[in-house]
Design a protein around this nucleic acid. Structure first.
Length: 415
RNA sequence: GGGCGGAUACUCAAGUGGCCAACGAGGGCAGACUGUAAAUCUGCUGACUUACGUCUACGGGGGUUCGAAUCCCUCUCCGCCCA
């Protein structure tokens, strides 16, 4: 079977004349999705608080699961018992699983990294879990997503140095540069060796496409080295990993702008874990095709709404009497459904579950609407118009301003 | 009518002579979050002030003391018990 029957195919439909952006479509066993694509995250085979219908209502065409979380609970074998994750979570469109490589650093407490793999401490029962490239692929084969990711070694951007007796000032990131560079280089080469093992271990090439992951931090030479190694394998897609793991937005942009164009033109390029709207836009212009990020869901659950004009923290007192929608330009269930800011605020203040659900839906829809607009811009290159419609693109990564409130007329006091 | 016990910041609740603008919790206000161990985490919450600090405060009033939320007298209100 092999090369002739690729589980995942990519076609480029159009190219931006002014940038490196591409408009395309990825086709998988569970249907296709348009690129550039934003993939919301459903770590534990659920988009926390949303039904599949609600996820679909956001325009999302592909979502993420996390192999590490699922192998611990309910276990990959059990998901296979139910016929795979699509059946299990009742989402019939494309799914991508992350390999668990990212968890080696996001949950680095108590993990042990060796050439063989990463030894974790299960957050479910505390037992020791050995995750190797072979096991990660086996788990992902069992879970059954359309796209699976290589098990990579993803070092932190700059090692956060434990407990210096320096209370506040320079708790930033200060590890000896040579040490850090060594660690990043090690990550690059180990990722390459692990990729070999992943490719060999992959048993379902007919049903699942395996993407390789490029590492190298912000060091462009290391990135080039990693690209050479990873792209020596003919894979259905390639990802840029090790980004947005602690660097500044500028570093992210700089790295992506340099790295993305070096990836094979005919394969989808996936920037893992990114990000804010402006980060996505910058990456699209550099030629990236796929994104995932927890921001819309994680922040949504905490009352942080993304809007074209910037962030709205719905719990802020200024929304108490606001009868207007979160974002008048939005067509999501929350905005088009007529829910007022005042009501949404009430839901959060009362810790009602509908609050996180509605804001998650809104936020995902916000990102999907942005992607629709971005895709259209690839055809006409009207990037300035795009930025005009999405002021948030020009704001700092985390906007502070509160968009103009809608009127509170007629509250009829002093009667 | 008599006895006892209470009254502390938005709420509940510590504190019984100086280290108390007052523990803690809730509530409130604000912030963080980029391949999700996140319904988590952080800061603030008497007033004025960027801050140092100053002022006003522990039911009301009056005392004792260098010094009181803390001790004494008295008043008001609340609770329980005895008539």
């Amino acid at each position: 079977m092999g090369a002739t029957e690729q589980a995942v195919r990519f076609e480029i439909l159009a190219r931006s004349a002014a940038t490196r952006a591409r408009l395309g479509r990825v086709t998988t066993p569970h249907g296709s999705f348009d690129t550039p694509a934003f993939m919301p995250v459903a770590t534990a085979a659920t988009m926390k608080g949303l039904t599949p219908d609600q996820i679909a209502s956001t325009g999302s065409q592909i979502i993420l699961n996390n192999a590490y979380h699922l192998m611990l609970r309910p276990t990959a074998e059990r998901i296979a018992h139910f016929g795979g994750t699509h059946e299990f979570m009742r989402w019939s469109k494309p799914i991508l699983t992350d390999s668990g490589g990212f968890q080696a650093w996001s949950m680095s407490e108590g993990t042990k990294l060796t050439e063989e793999g990463v030894e974790f401490r299960s957050f479910v029962d505390g037992s020791k879990i050995m995750l190797t490239p072979e096991r990660s692929i086996e788990v992902q084969n069992l879970i059954g997503a359309d796209i699976i990711m290589a098990f990579d070694d993803c070092p932190p951007a700059l090692e956060p140095e434990r407990a210096p007796d320096d209370p506040q000032m320079s708790r930033k990131r200060r590890s000896k540069p040579e040490e850090h560079a060594k660690r990043v280089r090690e990550g690059v080469d180990r990722t390459a060796r692990w990729l070999e093992r992943c490719v060999r271990a992959h048993r379902r090439t007919d049903a699942q496409g395996l993407f390789g992951i490029v590492q190298g931090g912000t060091d462009l030479e290391l990135r080039a080295r990693s690209i050479e190694q990873v792209c020596s394998h003919d894979l259905p897609g390639y990802a840029i990993g090790g980004v947005a793991v602690g660097e500044s937005p500028d570093e992210i942009h700089r790295t992506v702008a340099a790295v993305a164009p070096l990836l094979p033109d005919g394969r989808p390029r996936y920037l893992m874990g990114v990000g804010y709207e402006r980060d996505i836009l910058a990456a699209v212009r550099a030629g990236v095709d796929m994104f995932d990020c927890v921001l819309p869901t994680r922040n949504g659950r905490k009352g942080y709404a993304f809007t074209a004009a910037g962030a709205v923290r719905i719990r802020n007192a200024c929304h108490t009497l606001d009868r207007g929608p979160l974002d008048p330009a939005c067509d999501c269930l929350a905005c088009a459904g007529g829910f007022s800011r005042g009501y949404l605020r009430h839901l959060f203040m009362a810790e009602e579950l509908l609050g996180p659900t509605l804001l998650s839906i809104h936020n995902i829809r916000h990102f999907q609407r942005l992607m629709v607009d971005i895709r259209a811009r690839i055809l006409d290159d009207a990037w300035l118009d795009l930025e005009r419609r999405w002021p948030v693109l020009g704001l700092p990564a985390v906007a502070v301003g509160t968009p103009a409130e809608t009127s509170e007329e007629g509250s009829g006091e002093g009667g």
